[in-house]
Structure formats: structure tokens, C-alpha cells
Design a protein around this nucleic acid. Structure first.
Lengths: 155, 155
DNA sequence: GCAATCAGGACCGGGCTGGTCCTCTTTAGG
DNA sequence: CCTAAAGAGGACCAGCCCGGTCCTGATTGC
């Protein structure tokens, strides 16, 4: 189902949680409690997010976590990439040349690049801030179908 | 990495293979050979694709598979849905209400719906025919970033 | 110095995906 | 009719990756 890993899923929830309290210094325990993510898991994720520069941490007593930059400048894609690695639907894209074997004859490959790009763009167009604020109605879909698309509602 | 399942991946390759030979009656063995997908796997996938109406089959001696409708009218999303089930990045979307527990407090949920929609739209805007023909340069990306997006190249 | 936190791994169990195989049905053809 | 060629439909298995836990060490405030 093109499922997002649970890690990334939790990661987004955690980031949105943090985004609602822009003041620094929230301990892992606090964030875990508020986001309803089990503490050890949350802790693990928080550490990853720090390592990839989306969060900043304060060690030692009275330490905690906080956003490294404004929530509006952190995209959903950023979080996913931080926790799950590059956004690539197919192995032949992110594993680089030689991973597939079909490559030479596979006419689909070139197009997969665009599809990946499309998905990436979609996810990059939504910020953590957007997520935190349950944009109600006027939410602008970052994606538009091709106008000349011949298909009716197939799916 | 928002990885597509291998089933769906193979499925697309198989569909594009079939699309290049619109005449009916290609046996599973033929398709497998040409698409470089192991026969048992290909066979399994072909059966699934028939069941979901993307392919038609002829049983018995001299039987085989063929596209159920023109390749231009079968989207990549169709194939993915056929093999992997509904396109839903997060469990809280396709498992329906009650699957998550956070729902009530999770501000992200509403927005996930749109993100899913965005990805779905992107995948629905590309047909198997597009994939088969390695559209070279003028390929119209079915996705556009929001014009008012404040972010620079974060990812 | 002590206690509270974060950092960074090691480690493990279960579920799911990918893959194989077997048997049954259908159909063409001699 | 009988046989062979093909698809239909499942059962079944194994390896791997994900999700999850825990432990030990490094920092820092009090």
C-alpha cells in the first residue's frame, strides 16, 4: 500500500507535537506522553531527528528537545527522509545503477524517476506547521492532475 | 523509504511489457521471459491482475493474457491498487476510524488525507502507456509545487 | 557528587513479503 | 474422447526487515 514506515509516521506526529510548543526544552518523556508514542520509541526517533538536524537537543539535567528551525520551514518530506532515507518508490532509483538488472531494457525506469519526483514534490509541499494546524478548508493541494488526463475515476 | 512493494513494482513492469504487444494471447511464460520476472512470480501477479480487471485471460490450450483495456486507460495507480491494495501512506487512513487511537488529538490526521490524495493523484496521472513509451523530454509532470511555498530547497 | 537527561548502540521477536509448488479446471486439437 | 497446454486458486515456507526494548556511557545543572 505504499505504506509509510511507522517510524516516519511517528516522526511526523512527534514533530507536529513539538511544533505546537515552539518554546524549547521539552523532555523526551513529555513529548512521548503528549504524542502518545511509547517512550523508548519516541526517544529513538527524537535522537534520529536531532542527528539529521530537524531538532536540537540540550543534554544533561533540564535538557530537552526543540525545533531546529521554524515549523514552517520543515517539510513532511524532510521528516520522512530523516527517518526512512531517501524517498524512492523503486529500488532502481535510490540504489543507483546496477541494482536492477533490467535497467537496459526497462522502459519504465526513466518514468519512475518522474513519478518519484512527483511524490517527493507533493510531500515537500507540506510543512510540519501545516500539519500542526489542521488547515481546515482552504488547504491548497500541492498536486494537480494533468488537465488532459483521459481517464475517468478509475481508482 | 515509502517503498513500493516488489509485487507492485513487478506488476508495472509486466503491464508495460504487455502494453508493448497489444495483440492478445501471450502466455505467462512469454511475459515472464520478456519482463525478466521469475515465472512463478509473474504467474501469480498475472492472476491478480486478471482478478482486478486490468488484464483478460484465455484459459486452456493456446490461452494467454492481454490488456483488458487500452494501455492509455490504465494508470500506474490502478496497477498498484490491484496488487497492493488502496494507496494509503498511513494506517489511520485506510484502516478506517479507530485504527489509531490518537485520532481525536492527532491534528495531523486531516492533513494526511490530503497528502494521500496528492500521492494518489500523482500516480493516477501516469498511464501504463506512458510508462511503456519512455516519454523522453516533453513528459508533463503531473505534479506542481505550490507557488506560494516559502521553502527553498530544503531536502 | 548526584541526579536527570540525552547519545548511541546492541539486541531480539514477530509479521509480512517474496517466492515456490501443487492441484484443479478449462480448452484446443488430434 | 483423450491428452496436452495453459490458467486459477491456494497452501505453504523462509528470510528479512521493522518495530520495539534495553543497557551503558556522556553531559550538564544543582
Amino acid at each position: 500500500m505504499i505504506r509509510l514506515s511507522r517510524l516516519a509516521d511517528y516522526g511526523i506526529v512527534i514533530m507536529t507535537t513539538a511544533a505546537r510548543h515552539p518554546e524549547r526544552h521539552h523532555t523526551a518523556a513529555e513529548i512521548a506522553a503528549e504524542s502518545a508514542v511509547p517512550l523508548p520509541m519516541a526517544s529513538k526517533i527524537l535522537k534520529s531527528l536531532v542527528r539529521s538536524g530537524l531538532l536540537e537537543s540540550q543534554r544533561g539535567a533540564r535538557g530537552g528537545y526543540g525545533l531546529a528551525r521554524p515549523a514552517g520551514r520543515i517539510s513532511v518530506a524532510d521528516v520522512i527522509v530523516a527517518l526512512d532515507g531517501p524517498i524512492a518508490l523503486t529500488a532502481c532509483i535510490d540504489d543507483g545503477p546496477g541494482a536492477c538488472g533490467l535497467e537496459a531494457l526497462c522502459p519504465a525506469r526513466a518514468n519512475w524517476q518522474r513519478i518519484n519526483e512527483a511524490v517527493r514534490t507533493a510531500l515537500d509541499g507540506i510543512s510540519v506547521d501545516d500539519m500542526a494546524n489542521t488547515v481546515p478548508v482552504a488547504f491548497a493541494l500541492p498536486v494537480r492532475p494533468r488537465a488532459e488526463d483521459p481517464r475517468a475515476g478509475v481508482g
